[in-house]
Amino acid sequence: MNQTPNNLSCHSLLNQVYQTGFAVDDAILFLDTHPSDPAALAYYHQAHALYNNAVQAYEMQCGPLFMTDVNDRNYWTWINDPWPWEGGCV
């Protein structure tokens, strides 16, 4: 997989998505058993906002992260990335 400068920042942008998404998941697990915990709720909303920003930042530069995030009206940009068998797994 060629590591063009742009591609490299896609990797780090994706890492941000992973890290923030993980924090959201862990906060959710805690909230399932502590539904009224104020600190946990505050953390969840903060992490969730960070996650949304991370996804947005990734998609602006690197294309849709989810099939349901294709915005282009003229072309199905979902297929722009290399497929897994073309080394597309990040």
Partner: peptide, 20 residues
């Protein structure tokens, strides 16, 4: 019973596999 406490920074939490 777990109570909410300090949390790891995001990058460390991701490596550790927990925010707690």
């Amino acid at each position: 019973w777990q109570t909410w406490g300090q949390t790891y920074p995001l990058d460390r939490a991701f490596k550790a596999g927990t925010i707690f």
